[in-house]
Computed example of a mutant assay.
Amino acid sequence: MNRLQLTASIVEREAVRYTPAGVPVASCTLQHHTEVVEAGIPRQVELTLPAVAAGEVSGKMEGCAMGIPMLFTGFLAKKHRNARTLVFHITELQDLGKD
């Protein structure tokens, strides 16, 4: 199964573009900071990750304030067939400040 949930903040955002079929696509960069325990030892984890959202979710992502933690759900895929870089494809997002 390819499913990722990540609490992160949007730190960069590009203008919405449209596919030839007219589907809106929003691209951004997410930033994540946390502490996890690995082998009994606390470890600081910081990462940035390129992400995209298509369709209705792209509009929701565009409405998100930058720098505010959100819960993003989706999957990882290569940027294109021969790429080595992974991109987080967002399928759901949730404002952590709202119940």
Rank of each mutant, 00 (worst) to 15 (best):
L4D: 00
A8F: 04
N2C: 08
P20H: 01
E56T: 15
G67C: 03
E38N: 11
D95M: 06
Q94K: 12
S9P: 05
A53G: 06
T85L: 13
T48S: 10
V87D: 11
E62G: 00
D99Q: 09
L6S: 04
M1E: 12
F75E: 00
V87F: 06
T19Y: 08
G74I: 03
K60T: 03
E46H: 14
A8I: 01
T48P: 02
A51E: 00
F88C: 07
A15L: 13
Y18A: 09
V57R: 00
G59H: 15
L96D: 08
L4V: 10
N2Q: 08
I68A: 12
Y18M: 10
R43M: 07
A53N: 03
L6R: 06
G40R: 01
I10R: 05
K60Y: 11
A54Q: 11
C28G: 07
R84G: 00
V23Y: 02
G59C: 09
L86I: 13
T29S: 07
D99I: 09
M1Y: 08
E92S: 12
Y18C: 07
R81I: 08
L76Y: 05
L76V: 02
E12K: 14
K98F: 10
A26E: 14
T48R: 13
G63C: 02
H32Y: 04
T19C: 03
